[in-house]
Amino acid sequence: MSSGEPVLEIKGLCVDYGLGDRAVRAVRDVDLTLHRGEVLGLAGESGSGKSTLAYGMTRLLAPPGVISGGEVVYHPPAGDPVDVLRLDDAGLRRFRWAETSIVFQGAMNSLNPVHRVSTQLTDVLAAHRPAMSKTDRLSRARELLTLVGIAPDRLDSYPHQLSGGMRQRVMIGMALALEPQVVIMDEPTTALDVVMQRQILRQLVDLRERLGFSVLFITHDLSLLVEFSDRIAIMYGGRIVEQAPAAQLYRDSLHPYSEGLLHAFPPLRGPRRELTGIPGAPPDLRSMPQGCAFHPRCPKVFDRCTEELPPLVVPVDGSTARAAAAATEGPTAGAEQRSVACWLHPGR
């Protein structure tokens, strides 16, 4: 459960692809806070900037990706906060895996096909804990496989000898090898069937409760996040357009885009309803529309939407009271109220 204390704060982060006048801004002034012990879901269509945000905040962007502004402040359990974007190479090497780890979308692409599972798990330990003996590293590798529900005798297997779900569990075990405070999961269940998705998610929630790490879970499938996230942030056109406790967003979404995503999958409970898609296509980042980026697709658009960009604010209409009530009930109580970037809900 979340303590309400921040473990990672993203402030005004901007990420571009390319330089100069031809640069394409993929992440635009994003502010996002992950609290200690929290599962924060990040949802949006493909191309909304979710993965770019994850790679930017961990400094894993491949060229021509460039971080053009902002801060990523990590709060360790002890000691002073550090700006990840200002770490030197040695500091960044210590930070990765030990403090923050990442589980990528395709486990088969992330695992080395010519090395056994044991080698790939122990290499992480050897790189960050050189004083650890080979026997202790193998013992830890067996412990990690057991932790994620895989028999230790699969240590001698190659990635191609494992199922998709097992490979993804190996990646989760690798991410937890050094007991990091933050685990970033970039669509880790996309290539898996629905049954395996639920098994891995249940196991992830159980591990979070046992070990106390925080999770930033990135996906386009909002139905997954509603089930197990504490809080959800919705991303569109490189910006956060709504944040709320998961149950509150499911019951009472404020942004028309969030509402569109929620109506794009069948309800988990209650009467049947007709599924509706979101008309149009995501914006071209090279030529963003004036005003709200969603206005060309929005069923509730009015004149102001086409002229001014709405800021991400705490709404002052009737939803404020409902949001405050939800915040006091949920695991992030007192940590953060909901916010929305929409002229239908002006801020304070």
Rank of each mutant, 00 (worst) to 15 (best):
2 S>Q: 08
4 G>A: 06
5 E>M: 12
8 L>H: 08
8 L>N: 09
21 D>Y: 04
25 R>K: 13
26 A>I: 00
30 V>D: 03
31 D>H: 12
38 E>M: 01
43 A>K: 00
50 K>H: 12
50 K>D: 11
51 S>R: 10
57 M>N: 06
61 L>C: 04
61 L>Q: 07
69 G>S: 10
71 E>Y: 07
86 R>N: 03
87 L>E: 13
100 T>K: 10
101 S>H: 08
106 G>C: 02
109 N>D: 14
117 V>C: 08
118 S>E: 15
122 T>E: 08
131 A>S: 15
135 T>Y: 09
149 G>E: 09
159 P>T: 09
160 H>A: 13
163 S>F: 03
166 M>C: 02
169 R>V: 06
169 R>E: 02
174 M>R: 14
175 A>D: 07
182 V>H: 04
186 D>F: 02
187 E>N: 10
190 T>P: 04
194 V>A: 07
197 Q>D: 01
203 Q>P: 00
206 D>M: 01
207 L>K: 02
208 R>G: 03
210 R>Q: 11
218 I>P: 02
219 T>E: 01
220 H>A: 06
221 D>W: 10
226 V>R: 15
226 V>D: 12
228 F>V: 12
232 I>E: 08
233 A>D: 10
241 V>C: 05
242 E>Q: 09
251 R>W: 00
261 L>D: 12
263 H>E: 12
265 F>I: 15
267 P>D: 11
276 T>N: 07
279 P>L: 03
286 R>E: 12
292 C>S: 01
293 A>E: 10
302 F>Q: 11
306 T>D: 05
318 G>R: 14
323 A>Q: 14
324 A>M: 14
327 A>V: 15
328 T>D: 14
332 T>M: 11
